[in-house]
Design a protein around this nucleic acid. Sequence first.
RNA 1: GGCCCCAUCGUCUAGGCAGGUCUAGGACACCGGGUUUUCAACCCGGCAACAGGGGUUCGAAUCCCCUUGGGGCUACCA
Length: 564
Amino acid sequence: MAEKFNGELARRGGLVEPVVTRFAPSPTGYLHVGGARTALFCWLMAKHTGGTMILRIEDTDQKRNTPAATQQVIDDLRWLGIEWDEGPEVDGPNGPYFQSQRLDIYQKYTQKLLDADLAYYCFDTPEELEATRKESQAKKENFLYRRPEKLPDEKDVEKARAEGRPVVIRFCMPNEEIIVNDIVRGEVKFPAGEFGDFIICKSDGYPTYHFACVVDDMLMKITHVIRGQEHLMNTPCHIALQKALGFRTPNYVHMSVTISEGGGKLSKRERGKTLVKAIKQIPNADLEKIASVGGITSDELNDFLNGKSQIEQEIISAIADYLGVHLPEINVVDFFESGYLPEAMVNFIALLGWSSGGKKEIMTKDELIEAFDLARLTKTNSLFDRDKLLAFNTEHMKLVDKETLLGHFKKYLAVIDSPIQKADDDMLKRILQINEGAKTLEMVEHKSRFLFLDNDKIEYDEKAVQKVLLKDNGLAMLQIIRDRLDAMGELSEKAVEDMLRGLAEEKQVGLGKVAQPLRVAICGNTISPPIFDSIQLLGKENTLIRIDNTLQKFAAENAKNAEK
RNA sequence: GGCCCCAUCGUCUAGGCAGGUCUAGGACACCGGGUUUUCAACCCGGCAACAGGGGUUCGAAUCCCCUUGGGGCUACCA
């Protein structure tokens, strides 16, 4: 397990300093791939050095944050196997780990800046701010908020409050060149005059991201701030804040961004787009039915289809499910629900913007921890390649031990609607075993579910029936197989194999000519796990019933074919 | 618009900081072949890149500059 590296590397001759990293998500929804990657790098770095990873919830936006989202993020991280050393549900010496519970702390530091005239009150309304911004835009100038000559005092604040104006606190951003020392990018210089006085305390009394982040990183003794490149432009503000507060500056690591096939950042909006495209391709789509599946009105659906409005992810998923449309996975849960393994996700995501330098790409978590090194982070943005992820998943399906795979399979089955839920552990293991080589758990499920269906619920694939049953005397062959199976005792794989091979030899045909009709009879199409195992698992009684059903159902058509 | 980051096969990348050993290596995808009871898996082979232009140098994928292209930031979101 990963734990065995905890501290071990650090102890080894003291070559590596233990670091303290933090993953600081804002709880606005499920954890997405980009967030997972940031969390993973923080975790790998901490584990590699025998250091600490802190999970900090940045819930300072009262409008957007939900408690449910926090739980979702926690669950997703746990599923991936990313275990923080301090944070929600774990606790530690640096709590609380929810920023909403640290308001008094931020207030204290805000007051310090206020007292030193390094921060000041402002009373602009959003409308006024917007107007000034537009003005600057018209003049093709950058809008930068500059402090007034005389900073407002307590009386001004009271007056503004009385007038019902919003009261915020801004930081006096120094007008000087600021240099960011970044581990991936080296020295990045920002010329003076690029930054205005930004808000550190919002009108609702909550701190802004910039302020809370700087204060907490200091208090939590973070040594390495690992985050996306989109924060590089924020860093000068953070450094200025640190200087004003007398804090040290942590090491900064601005990772490249993961982009999607379409261009830009990986975004959940892609799921909506995919669904719209799919619905528009359906001729005479029953929009009313589709809307009702999603629990929305036809008008709402129409607005969504015309791009006038967005609908919730849950609704998008429900409709896609109903239509059988495969949506691109964006959030970590999406991958879970598509039958991916956390081991594969972690391995694949680690290789987005990082490489071990060696030729080995398929790695376990322990191998990743051991090999991880910030110096090997890539500067270039990387595209999320689903094909490669699938290949990685296929590898990890073979790599994880049987018990682990069983655990993953059970978790997967628990969230999807599958008749396989009926099976016990031994049966599930058997199913996984005969599906060796499958790319995902979803494929295992699809290929094996027929075993658990009622005998009269088999759906026949038309092409399979035509090709296998109604041609080359497929049905006649099936009849012979039926009689021989009937004459046998219990159907072991070996017994079935001997019988089928013997029959093929006797008739001077390939095994396929006898196996395929039987396959179609028991599962309705030409795709299934190996036939001998399938028959054994189905059992003699069910097998015979399904063969009889098949013979009966297609006998008439066969007669028609014979006339031709 | 301003500012910042980036640039090797279609994709992820090795090589770059210490220039020659790079006729540029690996992986995924793709194409061809093999194996085979189906789908997969598996095995063998193949295609395929230093964005363009200037420098520096005996020598540049590697160092410098410009162009182009991509990405990010520019909120009382994080």
